[in-house]
């Protein structure tokens, strides 16, 4: 089942990086310097996690990617185009952003209407709209809830509904804010499968997360933020390797258990449980 679905994406792929942020500074009206010179380029099809302590600037950064916030200084380019000249409604066709709390967006009396809201705003109608809605709901495992009232669903399923409502917009870039919050193991697996599916279709996926195990096991690139700056940018193996731990601790993050156990046993970099088991097996064979 394709999340992008049968019809063409709203925005054609371009050669430029999906996202290019240069010298981004954001100062809130009350004077908080939330971003302090962020430089970041994310290529099309990348799967990137943004991590960091509360208040490190993660949400402020992603809100610049769809124009909800405008830079105090610096530039944001989306698919090769300067975001400064585009309204949020136009950027929404390029960047889908699912917020952390589903209850801050759900308004419709039916799941179908809730999911249709975004793509309808993008101009989808008729069969294309219906297909987008059904595909998105199938992707998050809510295909059977098409006519349910969203508030009859539990929190974790409302969270998946909120993700579906963004998937249905078929944007080339998808941002998920804390997608695993409130999810059990099966839900986390579902979220991981959704993101893998999006990347397999060539879409760029970014997620904010505090779940380091999920980050280590899901993403190919991890960006660590602290006090409005990027402090580490690399693969999970590099980010969760022992030399990076002081920087992680400084931003109140703890490497995944597998990484800590691997380091304690002298097995090298084992950011995931699979890597840890493999390292243990290799030692046993050796």
């Amino acid at each position: 089942m394709s999340i992008v679905a049968a019809s063409a994406p709203v925005v054609e792929p371009v050669a430029a990086p999906a996202i290019r942020v240069a010298g981004l500074v954001h100062v809130y009206p009350e004077g908080t310097r939330a971003l302090d010179g962020v430089d970041l380029a994310i290529e099309t099809g990348e799967l990137v996690a943004i991590v960091g302590q509360n208040g490190s600037g993660k949400s402020t950064l992603v809100r610049h990617l769809n124009g909800l916030l405008r830079p105090t200084a610096g530039t944001v380019e989306i698919l090769g185009e300067d975001a400064a000249g585009l309204r949020v409604a136009a950027l929404a066709a390029r960047v889908g952003l699912a917020f952390q709390n589903p209850d801050r967006q759900i308004f419709a009396g039916r799941v179908r209407a809730e999911v249709a809201f975004g793509p309808r705003n993008m101009g989808l109608r008729g069969e294309a709209l219906e297909t987008a809605v059904r595909d998105a709901l199938a992707a998050v495992g809510l295909a059977a809830e098409l006519d349910a009232n969203p508030y009859d669903l539990g929190y974790s399923r409302r969270k998946l509904l909120a993700i579906a409502s963004v998937l249905a917009m078929r944007t080339p870039i998808v941002i998920l804010d804390e997608p695993t919050t409130g999810q059990d193991l099966r839900g986390v697996g579902r979220v991981r499968a959704i993101m893998d599916g999006l990347v397999a279709e060539g879409r760029t996926v970014i997620a904010i997360s505090h779940d380091m195990r999920f980050v280590a096991e899901t993403f190919r690139r991890v960006v660590v933020m602290r006090a409005g700056r990027l402090v580490i940018d690399g693969t999970p193996a590099a980010v969760f390797a022992q030399p990076s731990w002081p920087a992680l601790v400084a931003t109140y993050l703890e490497p995944p258990l597998a990484a800590r156990v691997g380091a304690r046993l002298g097995l090298g970099d084992t950011p995931t449980e699979t890597a840890l088991v493999d390292a243990l097996a290799a030692r046993g064979e050796g």
């Binding site: 809100r63 769809n66 909800l68 309204r87 949020v88 409604a89 929404a92 066709a93 960047v95 889908g96 952003l97 699912a98 917020f99 801050r104 967006q105 308004f107 809201f117 975004g118 705003n121 993008m122 409502s165 963004v166 917009m169």
Partner: peptide, 10 residues
């Protein structure tokens, strides 16, 4: 912000 992210034109 959430609704504008889904294309609501305010």
């Amino acid at each position: 912000a959430a609704q504008r992210s889904r294309g609501l034109d305010t």
